[in-house]
Nucleic acid binder design. Structure first.
Lengths: 248, 248
DNA sequence: GCAAGACTTTGACGCAGATCAAGATTTGGA
DNA sequence: TCCAAATCTTGATCTGCGTCAAAGTCTTGC
């Protein structure tokens, strides 16, 4: 299965998670080349909608850089975010022809896309791709279920702490350490987007963020830059085990 | 790929969804026979725990008959149901060694199980199985995300109506039509289990069920037997489009 | 550098659903 | 058949978060 060429990563693909995670180092050379043929990049600006719920979806792909959200909207306008897409996350469903959710770029976004039909065709012939996608989808399912606990049973304060701990842990690209080796990052979401993710109003989000700051759980510089002095404390506030449940 | 034997269903397997949905009519005869070798049935009584969160999980499988729930519990005892397993639903994750949730039988339950190691091994050699599991997992992910909207944004009354409409639509085995051709079924969940699914208290569930009855949206015979005079009305109460969103 | 719009904070008040409590109904075992 | 436990209903009261309102603070383009 393995050969030298499949292990090497060509420069233009060094940022492409699908190729890294699903394909590279596992498939035959000619499969890699076929995948290369149907691959292309798309860029979106912050605020742009990548795809509307119900639209025909003619590609699948994964996030290379930036952040996007998946949201559902009820007829009366209530909206719930159902997924946060960070670099390396996959978008799209083989076998489904239209999008089930709105996908919106919340920061500038680069996606690595594959035309859907040839990708599906290739999946049929390349078992590792389906297996890798299954693995990724099971991870997403776990994350969705973890989030159900947050939405159904946690208080507003716990919800905020849960969101901050997910962001602090999941997106290596925005995470830094400051001079004292504390976690520090820019929030990639507005208060309103946080509210949509957490099933709260933006006013409640704002109040609870202020409360966490006042209590020393987080530090804020401006509206968006967050520093976590003690990640264990934050996890406690989130109602998680100190060792972090599924996020560990 | 196809041959006569793979299309025929042996009697002892006529109820096994994995075989129907993932394997039958798609694989070679010898794969079918190997699958048969590692297959076994397990029965559980109502109330029994199938597996505890964190336990080593040495099988995967699917529900043949009965209903089970997936729940998460916080240290302080708050619990959230994160999945409802109806006949044909799959349990277990190839590649994961321990269970992430408690699985509890809420009615008498029959499961069709496969020993995990040989099943995984077989999955590697039989692309259709991974592809079928991917399809099923994507469906579960959609259901989980639909439920996030219910948990995050719907009122108590809408939540109850949403749960009833899911049960009314998804479990063909408990669904009947009465003499006037109206949907009618026994609720497979206690008020407490409904509360755990909906992120409510059991008192609120009881009150809202009573309210829906008083308003003629549902009819009750005893505590558990429900009749839906007008499914469109119920969907309206659930806040869904009359044509049902992802449940359509 | 300033005006307009987007985003955020804070306050006052109301309400949906939680909590606490008591009692009714159903189930099951001796 | 009867008692005990489980399940469900209903009422009274409390509270966390939503709603409405106003003002503060960033950002952007001119």
């Amino acid at each position: 299965m393995l050969n030298e060429k499949s292990l090497s990563v060509s420069p233009d693909c060094s940022e492409c998670p699908i190729r890294h995670r699903a394909v590279c180092a596992r498939c035959e050379t000619d499969e890699l080349e076929r995948l290369e043929e149907i691959k292309y990049y798309r860029k979106f600006e912050a605020g742009q909608t990548v795809i509307w719920s119900g639209d025909r979806m003619e590609f699948v792909g994964s996030v290379v850089s930036g952040i996007a959200t998946l949201t559902q909207t009820m007829e009366d306008g209530r909206t719930q975010m159902v997924g946060l897409l960070l670099p390396s996350d996959f978008v799209g469903r083989p076998g489904r022809s239209s999008a089930a959710y709105d996908v919106v770029a919340t920061t500038d976004l680069v996606m690595c896309c594959f035309r859907k039909a040839p990708f599906e065709e290739m999946m049929l012939r390349t078992p590792h791709i389906a297996q890798r996608l299954l693995e990724m989808t099971l991870d997403e399912l776990d994350a969705a279920r973890e989030w159900m606990l947050v939405l159904g049973r946690k208080t507003a304060r716990e919800k905020i702490a849960s969101l901050l701990s997910i962001i602090a842990r999941r997106d290596a690209s925005i995470n830094q350490r400051d001079v004292e080796d504390r976690l520090t990052f820019d929030l990639p979401l507005t208060r309103e987007a946080m509210a949509d993710y957490l099933g709260l109003t933006l006013e409640t989000v704002s109040r609870q963020v202020s409360a966490l700051r006042k209590d020393g759980v987080i530090e804020l510089e401006g509206k968006r830059h967050v520093t976590i002095p003690d990640i264990g404390r934050l996890l406690e506030e989130a109602g998680d085990d100190a060792d972090g449940g599924v996020f560990a």
